[in-house]
Amino acid sequence: MELIQQLVNGISLGSIYALIALGYTMVYGIVKLINFAHGDVFMVGSFVGFYAITVMDLSFISALLISMFTCAIFGVLIERIAYKPLRNATRIAALITAIGVSLLIENGLIYIRGAQPEAYPNNVLPMDKLDIFGVSISSQSILILSVSIILMIILQFVVHKTKIGKAMRAVSFDSEAAKLMGINVNNTISATFAIGSALAGAAGVIFGIYYIKIEPLMGVLPGLKAFVAAVLGGIGIIPGAMVGGLLLGVIEALVSAAGYSLWRDGVAFIVLILILIFLPQGLFGKNKREKV
């Protein structure tokens, strides 16, 4: 029973990784950039949610939506200001810029509000314990998991059924051909950043509610782990990021359950190394896409 509870924890944590990993993977898919500032967008989302709940006294859903909206705009600003001028630059230049943006956001926030942590109030979501076949699961975990799943379903719908989603897939496959269809590549890239960042913002609020403590450097580790999750699933592949995130969360929970909780953070990077050695294209990746 202990194990099942750990699994539920793992899935909840994994759904947070998955939401962040989606942004990494979508952005990589379309501009081939590992956006290292993405973990910081998650952090900003967490703070926006915190202020929405404590200062503006809003409900969970309103805070979630405000955080997603703010992060969407923030993500687009980052893209337009920092990355767009480098679109034709070398990959390493863009990567270094991404790390620079990450440091700027972290230290910018520390400059504005200080480095002290905050605590999410613990009454945002009902805290009942549900008894399911003898396993006690908090209603909070279930709500969090449901929100993540709903967001992922909406994302799938957007990517596959809407015009902007089709444009995103076209641009990430072949941006020049997409231009010939009349697709505005710049706007499509911005939309991708907006959607990815909104998901990170949602993850930030969920994280705050689940783990209570938030601080300006909180995005670093989940950001890196979500990156591992994206690579695990196959970078650039949306369902891969979802599965990779959930899997990584479960692996961490199982490692904890086995009594190696000190190894919890390290295990993500062991996974990364193993994946890069044995399955560099990731679980869902095909062996190099063919372009004839």
Binding site: K166, R169, A170, F173, D174, A177, R289, E290, K291, V292
Partner: peptide, 9 residues
């Protein structure tokens, strides 16, 4: 040249 269809669609 080379068709450039969206192979994944």
């Amino acid at each position: 040249e080379g068709r450039r269809v969206f192979a994944n669609m």
